[in-house]
Design a protein around this nucleic acid. Structure first.
Lengths: 358, 358
DNA sequence: CTGAAAGCGCTTACAG
DNA sequence: CTGAAAGCGCTTACAG
């Protein structure tokens, strides 16, 4: 069904090459417009059932598939959305990509892959993708400094949804997860285990995402009458290497101090993985000496040693909702903080009750 | 440069909407064909330098970008390639995707994302992508059973390159890494450390990739006068969970036996990660009791505890070469086993000399 | 070498 | 309701 039938043996004089609408019309002995309307389910058509059937059968048998370019030229819709991500190497955004792709497929749309850095550096690539009417809209990963500032320009030229990180552009549609609730849950989990002093290896200082995550921690601590001390927080890139360095910095600060945090939150899973490595390298037992918990649940979280306590954000749904919002054609400038489904806590072996004070 | 200029204030009577070639021609006071030829660097053009300059400037100032659909209709080239992968969740194929995307970008091509499973299940999606002249060619991830059998059909309709895993279709162009050399290197590393008996948690039994990897191990052992015993090999899916189960199965077999392997090779990094987890769970110290090494180097390899010895395959280059091959328009049916760059060994903490016999 | 004309394949006002 | 005609924006034989 629907798959390209093996082309019939070319009869002498038969046209070769892909099947066009004209071929279908001729085979079904109807006009080309009627064939078009029937195939596109035009409700205004009143063709006799048998005519209709003849058209559908001809299309089926010839393996007719409309030429995407021709249709796009006529209706000025491409059936393509651009997905512009930052550096394809991060495992964290795969879920978002999957969600976006699946939702796009549901609408018979395809996703074209773009890269933030390339688009910033290569004007031609930028122009072709954004101004070449190559795609009907763009899903752009926010939170990347220089690029964020250009997004408003892009949004003026093309329907655009920023995902993942809120950016400072009010007139741009944005979809992002509930970061604050996520870290609040993570912190409450630690408090529930008995921790009273919690440290943070945060993301970059300028990152809005990082700030939201910190807000969740602060809120949870505040409710318990506690606070996140300035000295218990370091900033890191969103990488394992930086996470390693971040924890080492904290360990340095704690040198010889009896009164120190018993748990550390990692700004994301990569940072968390680096922290586990640093802890092992410095003889800090997790969770006996120190509990570690991170934002994002990835394939590796449960297989680390010790397995890593995380909170997962609904990134798949962020992708889904972003594409749906884009294709809904509604007004721009909407901000959606995705609260449903909520973040999910995954308590694992890296968190436990704090060591009893010596 | 090249970026869409902010549209001028619309003068009364001015046409609104995107700039067309006709607008450029009019502004430069030349015919539309001449404008087209100059903008496309037609070498036959002998226009006066000032005419040429006028055209380029008009295009620049109006922010002209050719309509992709219109051009595609005319020249029957879309400027798009399909990248059909299996399940976007695997961290292993990100490198391949990056390589493919970068090379495509170099040729001003964009990548459209497809999914193997979806294409198998959704005839419409399949038809639109493959027969809709939506893309000029396809890079398809091989090694996925049912889909492999359909690839030859696809290749008949559209230039196609299979990447990553060789498939059993001689007339289809294929690009894959040198799996055998990779595992040979890994095994030689273990032999060099003094191991004499090496076990394997392999990929699925039917996987060609898995067979090639096993061949490399066997070859290296053979050269050293050793062999991979049947009892020292188990098969697993390409997942961490399966790797965990795989090592547990081996540990079971070794129960109470003095003479047992001192090193295990993991069919890929996910399996390796699962194995490290299983070892820790069962009190097997890595590398003191057992060395573990895996195929593929991912972001997490060096941050695991212990850090995981791996061999990295040039997946980035596989992607690059696949796209280049596709765009070269050469004949099909070529098989490229990528031997340059060669696999790279990353010796880390998970491998060491075998324990001295009690 | 350049311009006027044709046409890629489709959809949709426009007549009938 | 349906068919003949127009036209989306581009490139390229075809004349000049």
């Amino acid at each position: 069904m629907g798959r390209p039938a093996t082309r019939d043996e070319p009869r002498p004089g038969a046209r070769t090459g892909p099947v066009r609408l004209a071929d279908v019309a001729k085979a079904a002995k109807v006009s080309q417009p009627l064939a078009s309307r029937v195939l596109n389910d035009d409700p205004a058509v009143r063709a006799a059932p048998e005519t209709r059937a003849r058209i559908l059968e001809a299309a089926e048998q010839l393996g007719y598939v409309p030429h995407a370019g021709a249709r796009s030229l006529r209706v000025s819709r491409t059936g393509l959305l651009g997905l512009v991500v930052h550096d394809l190497s991060s495992p964290i955004y795969l879920e978002l990509m999957r969600g976006a792709r699946e939702e796009a497929a549901r609408h018979r749309y395809f996703l074209v892959l773009g890269d933030v850095d390339e688009l910033l550096q290569d004007d031609d690539a930028f122009t072709i993708l954004v101004s070449g009417r190559r795609v009907d809209g763009l899903v752009v990963q926010g939170g990347h400094g220089e690029f964020d500032r250009r997004i408003a320009d892009i949004a003026r030229a093309l329907p655009t949804v920023v995902v993942n990180a809120p950016i400072d552009q009010d007139d741009v549609t944005q979809v992002y997860p509930d970061e604050t609730t996520a870290t609040r849950m993570l912190t409450q989990h630690l408090l529930g285990l008995g921790h009273r002093r919690v440290a943070l290896v945060a993301g970059p200082r300028q990152s809005m995402t990082s700030r939201l995550r910190e807000a969740g921690i602060t809120a949870a601590l505040d409710t318990a009458g506690l606070e996140l001390r300035e000295e218990d927080r370091v900033h890191a890139d969103w990488t394992a290497d930086a996470g390693r360095a971040g924890l080492e910095e904290l360990l340095d600060r704690w040198q010889g101090r009896a009164d120190r945090p018993t748990a550390v939150v990692a700004g994301n899973t990569l940072i968390g993985v680096g922290m586990l490595g640093a802890a092992a390298a410095h003889g800090i037992r997790v969770p006996a000496d120190l509990s570690v918990a991170a934002v994002h649940d990835t394939w590796v979280s449960e297989h680390l040693v010790p397995s890593l306590t995380t909170v997962s954000l609904p990134l798949h749904d962020v992708g889904t909702v972003a594409v749906r919002t884009l294709l809904s054609g509604g007004p721009g400038g909407i901000r959606v903080e995705l609260t449903d489904p909520p973040p999910v806590l995954h308590p694992r072996a890296s968190t436990a009750a704090p060591p009893t004070r010596a």
